[in-house]
Simulated assay, not measured.
Amino acid sequence: MLRAFERSDVPAILELWNRRWGNLFPLDEALWAQQTVGDPQHFRPDLARVAVEGQRIVGAVSMKTPPNPVTGGSWASQNPKNAWISFVLVEPGREADLGPKLLEYALEALRREGFEWVQYGGDPSHFFPGVPREDSSLAELLQGYGFEKRKTEGKDRLEQDLIRDLSDYQLPEEARAALQASGLAAFAQRNTRLETASCTRENVPGLLDFLAENFPGRWLYDTQERLKVELTPADILVLKGQGRIWGFCHLYHAGSRRIGPGIYWRKALGPGYGGLGPIGVSRDLRGRGLGFALLCYGVQRLKELGVQRMVIDWTTLADFYGKIGFKPWRSYLAYSRKL
């Protein structure tokens, strides 16, 4: 039987989640709360359902939708007709009978709400960028209901979380050299160089202006959400010069108030966990090695903060991050379909 989600269901859902995915994606109440009730602009508790047998929860499905209007607390480029299924969760071994019931309910509920497109994962305050590659039964379920994999140049688009142990990390000379050369490469004034620094409260307006100009979608939105809860913006590393912000990079560690995507699965990382991302530089300065420099200084900063193992989440740029030793850790495939 499917029934409406109740807040009192959370402990049982967490137990079910960790029976299903706990080895790879250990979920705790803090992350659950942040990604669900902590995102009231998108999370739809009225649409969420649990599958119950007797008093036992054996399945659950959760969805998110854009706010109405889209500009109200979200990002302007968000498609108002696009919805998300955050997860379809079933008791191990019950995929064949419970999975279809939950998915059919979700698709019909979103159709009734007037949505035209649905994506699995990748939602605001997501749990997963897509379907974990390890969960083949979930992928088969979605394919059986018309979901298709996103393609890039004719190939399945693979999103990855990358990991690195920082015990042997040293700041590459290439990163120092890129910043040293920035005065000559970027500006007419040769005595002006870019530098990396922790963001200050005084930098925040310039940071938000930079993001609105260069990354006006999700990255601006995620930064605004983070700034609402952190005591200080210092864990956002900025690239600055000439009184402007030219790049940014989010850093996460055990002291962060916001649980960033790189540290979602911190229980699988062990003590001394950390994460980095998103990261980006001004379109005017790309191709000069400054993004790489910002990355390297961000990793160095996390090491100085005591991080031992760190993750860069949700990327297709394994070769870029691999230049400083990051290797694949978790992988996802993006699935979506018309409603």
Score class of each variant (00 low, 15 high):
R20I: 00
W21Y: 13
W21K: 08
W21T: 08
G22Y: 01
G22F: 00
N23T: 15
N23W: 07
P26T: 14
P26R: 14
L27T: 03
D28N: 14
D28F: 04
E29D: 13
A30Q: 12
A30F: 02
L31K: 09
W32A: 13
A33Q: 11
Q34D: 03
Q35C: 10
Q35M: 12
V37G: 10
D39T: 14
D39N: 15
D39S: 15
D39C: 15
P40I: 11
P40H: 13
Q41Y: 15
H42T: 05
H42E: 07
F43W: 15
R44N: 01
P45I: 06
D46Q: 01
D46K: 04
D46Y: 05
D46C: 08
D46V: 04
D46I: 01
D46G: 08
L47H: 00
A48H: 04
A48R: 02
R49Y: 04
R49C: 07
A51M: 05
V52R: 07
E53D: 05
E53P: 04
E53F: 01
E53R: 10
G54S: 03
Q55W: 01
I57Y: 03
I57W: 02
I57R: 10
I57P: 05
V58I: 14
V58N: 08
V58T: 15
V58Y: 00
G59L: 06
G59I: 02
G59W: 00
G59Y: 06
A60N: 13
A60M: 01
A60K: 12
V61L: 01
V61C: 02
S62V: 10
M63E: 04
M63N: 03
K64L: 02
K64R: 08
K64F: 03
T65I: 00
T65K: 08
P66D: 15
P67D: 12
P67W: 01
N68I: 14
N68C: 12
N68P: 02
N68F: 14
P69F: 00
P69T: 08
V70Q: 05
T71R: 12
T71A: 09
T71Y: 13
G73D: 05
G73N: 13
S74E: 10
W75F: 03
W75L: 06
W75G: 11
W75H: 12
A76M: 01
A76E: 12
Q78A: 15
Q78T: 09
N79V: 09
P80A: 14
K81G: 04
K81W: 04
N82P: 04
A83D: 00
W84I: 02
W84E: 05
W84A: 09
I85F: 07
F87K: 11
F87C: 02
V88K: 10
V88F: 05
